[in-house]
């Protein structure tokens, strides 16, 4: 059903820490690895070893340069996948009912057997979270690893999305963002977690933690600095001779 639930029991989602993400793309690889052989159709690649490779991914890592008003520019790595929006525009546009948002945990999923591959949901998503698989002709998107998080055949520490499990810098967190006492909600409250494109009105569940302010080196110089003697002003010995000789040339 493409009517959005008025309220979901839980709001499962990710919290992504832009301060600690190192841009290693391990989440991209583990996401593709898990999802190409589990839920739904495989994530195909086209011309993977040729001159013009492309393929379907549910998670991609961008990198941005931010230039503050003063000081050096900063490089921010920016993983992006489905944000499992509360007002998901991708769901309501679907003509077949293949796209839906689950009432129990808020996960947005595609029932691939009903998908006609019209692509309208990908048009409606401002985040580029949905990609039409070229080989299968159906829409693929992040499932929040719905086949891991409730999977009792896996050891308990593995019952999180593959991207979260694999992240070596602990930049990805998984939990119920509808519960204000959950670890992820507290993290968001503490660090000022933010929405992407809030003006689009999608009410994303996933939150991004902004980078912490960087140390500043040059703001205050020691008042004794002018009194300190320079370590070496004029080279002596061989270097001094070389310096003079080169200047004469």
């Amino acid at each position: 059903m493409t009517q959005l639930p008025e309220k979901t029991e839980r709001k499962m989602g990710l919290v992504i820490d832009l301060d600690t993400c190192v841009g290693c793309h391990a989440c991209v690889v583990s996401c593709k690895g898990w999802n190409t052989e589990n839920y739904g159709a495989p994530l195909s690649d086209q011309d993977p070893y040729g001159a013009d490779p492309s393929g379907t991914f549910l998670n991609r890592v961008h990198s941005y340069e931010v230039q503050p008003e003063s000081g050096p520019a900063q490089l921010i790595h920016f993983p992006k996948s489905c944000l499992h929006c509360e007002d998901a525009p991708c769901v309501t546009v679907c003509p077949t009912g293949a796209s839906y948002k689950r009432t129990e945990d808020g996960i947005v999923l595609v029932n691939e057997k009903d998908c006609i591959g019209c692509g309208l949901c990908a048009w409606a998503c401002p985040y580029g979270a949905r990609e039409l698989d070229k080989a299968e002709g159906v829409m693929k998107k992040c499932t929040l690893c719905v086949d891991r998080i409730y999977n009792e055949n896996l050891p308990e520490e593995d019952r999180v999305p593959a991207c979260v499990r694999t992240c070596p810098s602990n930049a990805r967190h998984f939990g119920d963002l509808g519960d204000p006492d959950s670890e992820v909600s507290q993290l968001v409250a503490e660090r000022g977690g933010m929405d992407l494109m809030p003006e689009q009105g999608t009410k994303p569940v996933n939150k991004y933690l902004p980078p912490r302010p960087k140390d500043r080196l040059n703001e205050e110089i020691d008042i004794l600095a002018p009194l300190l003697a320079p370590v070496a002003e004029e080279p002596k010995g061989f270097l001094g001779w070389l310096n003079k000789s080169l200047e004469k040339l």
Partner: peptide, 15 residues
């Protein structure tokens, strides 16, 4: 607004 990084400074797509 797309990256939420606007409050830090000017954002440019790097890679």
């Amino acid at each position: 607004t797309a990256t939420g990084l606007g409050r830090m400074g000017q954002v440019r797509a790097f890679e």
